[in-house]
Deep mutational scan, measured.
Amino acid sequence: DHDVVPEDKFQETLHLKEKEGCPQAFHALLSWLLTQDSTAILDFWRVLFKDYNLERYGRLQPILDSFPKDVDLSQPRKGRKPPAVPKALVPPPRLPTKRKASEEARAAAPAALTPRGTASPGSQLKAKPPKKPESSAEQQRLPLGNGIQTMSASVQRAVAMSSGDVPGARGAVEGILIQQVFESGGSKKCIQVGGEFYTPSKFEDSGSGKNKARSSSGPKPLVRAKGAQGAAPGGGEARLGQQGSVPAPLALPSDPQLHQKNEDECAVCRDGGELICCDGCPRAFHLACLSPPLREIPSGTWRCSSCLQATVQEVQPRAEEPRPQEPPVETPLPPGLRSAGEEVRGPPGEPLAGMDTTLVYKHLPAPPSAAPLPGLDSSALHPLLCVGPEGQQNLAPGARCGVCGDGTDVLRCTHCAAAFHWRCHFPAGTSRPGTGLRCRSCSGDVTPAPVEGVLAPSPARLAPGPAKDDTASHEPALHRDDLESLLSEHTFDGILQWAIQSMARPAAPFPS
Results as ranks from 00 to 15, higher is better:
Pro327Ala: 08
Gln325Ile: 11
Thr430Asn: 06
Phe420Met: 03
Glu296Pro: 09
Pro334Phe: 12
Pro348Cys: 08
Glu263Ser: 10
Ala467Tyr: 09
Asn262Val: 11
Ala467Val: 10
Gly398Lys: 06
His425Asn: 06
Arg505Ile: 15
Cys424Tyr: 02
Leu308Ala: 09
His415Asn: 12
Ser441Ile: 02
Gln392Pro: 13
Ser245Arg: 07
Glu274Met: 03
Ala472Arg: 08
Tyr361Arg: 05
Glu452Thr: 10
His415Asp: 06
Cys269Ile: 05
Ala504Pro: 05
Glu326Trp: 13
Glu452Ile: 11
Ser458Gly: 07
Gly341Thr: 09
Ile500Met: 12
Asp255Ser: 13
Ala288His: 08
Ser245Lys: 13
Leu359Ile: 15
Ala366Thr: 08
Pro324Gly: 08
Ala449Leu: 14
Pro332Gly: 04
Asp493Arg: 00
Pro328Arg: 10
Leu287Asn: 09
Gly336Asp: 00
Leu252Gln: 13
Pro328Met: 14
Ala499Gly: 02
Leu384Tyr: 13
His259Pro: 08
Ser443Glu: 09
Ser306Pro: 12
Ser473Cys: 14
Gly436Met: 12
Glu484Ser: 01
Val315Leu: 11
His479Ala: 09
Glu343Pro: 13
His490Gln: 09
Gly434Pro: 11
Ala508Tyr: 09
Gly405Lys: 11
Leu352His: 12
Gln316Arg: 09
Leu384Ser: 05
Gln260Ile: 05
Ser488Arg: 03
Arg461Val: 13
Ser473Met: 06
Arg303Ser: 10
Cys266Lys: 06
Leu385Val: 10
Pro368Glu: 15
Pro459Phe: 10
Thr408Ala: 10
His259Met: 15
Val410Ser: 09
His363Asn: 11
Ala353Cys: 05
Leu290His: 06
Val387Ala: 10
Ser299Thr: 13
Gly402Phe: 03
Pro328Val: 13
Gln497Met: 01
Ala267Leu: 09
Leu376Glu: 08
Gly341Tyr: 05
Pro332Asn: 04
Arg270Ala: 03
Leu462Val: 11
Arg480Gly: 01
Leu455Ser: 08
Pro368Arg: 12
Leu258Ile: 08
Pro317Ile: 12
Pro317Thr: 08
Ala353Phe: 15
Gly444Pro: 15
Gln260Trp: 14
Leu486Asp: 03
Glu320Tyr: 14
Trp422Glu: 12
Pro317Asn: 14
Val387Thr: 05
Gln325Trp: 13
Cys439Asn: 02
Trp422Met: 07
Ala248Arg: 12
Val451Phe: 07
Pro506Asn: 07
Gly280Pro: 07
